[in-house]
């Protein structure tokens, strides 16, 4: 095994181009478990922790997205990005423990692309693009196209994740996760929901209930039509129970879960429905309380 220690991003890209089989290591909270348990013996480890650029974030030109460096640890996201990325900050707070959150980040979560990764539902709901780079150039992969199979993603062998560009919240967002305790729990299933008052849409993300993280598209389409048809975005009325119920049913129906040690498929479908209804109610209440006025002012200005 070789330990590659690029000092700059350019060196990292060059190393990955030269050794496409090299395994990047950021926080190591997935990679080191595999090495410690002999599940993986990579020829090359490519350490990304010397590259300062990956640890910072800024705003994408134009201003409507945060460009989050691949290795910004969850702790920093929770502490510093709660306002702009509330769904991701909530998800970050549910990851493992302080020790793990001090090391692990979204780049590693995307690299592993586990259906149980907590960043995924939040990214799907907020809207995001993965900034993948190689010596050949940069491309932006829409988050909806990023997850290609169980623990598979759309990265080419010579590519690294430079950042993920996450839409700044334009309305309330929520994240909900089912597990046996609060800390140190891999999701039995998880649900992210974001209201987007500017486009009058709702987006969702489901974790651990299908081979990949997914959106509940039919549920979104139904809800978008129901909210538009009923004038809800303007009148800010309480969402009718029948609408919330149908949204929950369609969210559950979007799942394609399995039975495993953490839960049965039936339980997962049920829990996703419950979380869909709850996150809708929580975000809608927040929108009624504050978001609607703010948005109206935004429209006038």
């Amino acid at each position: 095994m070789d330990f590659l220690r690029p000092a700059t991003w350019e060196e990292a890209l060059a190393a990955k181009a030269e050794h496409p089989s090299a395994v990047p290591i950021a926080g190591g909270t997935d990679v080191m478990v595999e090495i410690n348990f002999d599940h993986r013996r990579p020829e090359y480890l490519l350490d990304l922790t010397r590259i300062g650029d990956l640890q910072t974030w800024d705003t994408v030109p134009g201003g409507d997205a945060v460009r989050l460096g691949a290795s910004v640890p969850y702790t920093r996201i929770m502490e510093n990005l709660r306002g702009e990325l509330p769904g991701l900050a909530l998800a970050a707070h549910t990851v493992a423990s302080p020790q793990i959150r001090n090391r692990g980040g979204v780049g590693g979560n995307l690299g592993t692309a586990s259906p149980a990764g907590d960043a995924h539902p939040a990214l799907l709901a907020a809207g995001a693009e993965v900034e993948a780079e190689s010596v050949r150039g940069t491309r932006l992969i829409p988050i909806d196209d990023f997850y290609t199979g169980v623990k598979r993603n759309a990265l080419a062998p010579d590519e690294l994740i430079r950042a993920v560009r996450v839409q700044k919240a334009d309305g309330p967002q929520q994240f909900s996760k089912v597990g046996t305790r609060n800390a140190m729990v891999i999701a039995v299933c998880a649900f992210g929901l974001a209201l987007h008052p500017e486009t009058r849409t709702v987006r969702t993300g489901i974790g651990s209930a299908a081979p990949t993280p997914i959106r509940a598209r039919t549920a979104e389409e139904f809800l978008n039509a129901a909210l538009e048809g009923g004038g809800f975005w303007d009148n800010g009325k309480i969402i009718t129970p029948s609408v919330a119920k149908r949204f929950a049913e369609l969210s559950a129906a979007a799942c394609n879960p399995i039975d495993d040690v953490r839960g049965t498929a039936d339980y997962r479908r049920h829990a996703v429905g419950v979380m869909a209804r709850r996150t809708l109610m929580w975000t809608w209440e927040a929108y009624r309380a504050t978001g609607r006025d703010a948005h109206r002012k935004g429209e006038v200005a």
Binding site: F3, R5, I25, G27, G28, T29, V31, M32, V33, I35, N36, L45, D47, T49, Q99, I100, N102, R103
Partner: peptide
Amino acid sequence: VCSCLVAAGQ
């Protein structure tokens, strides 16, 4: 941090 998950080279 958990030192079991930090690679020595890091």
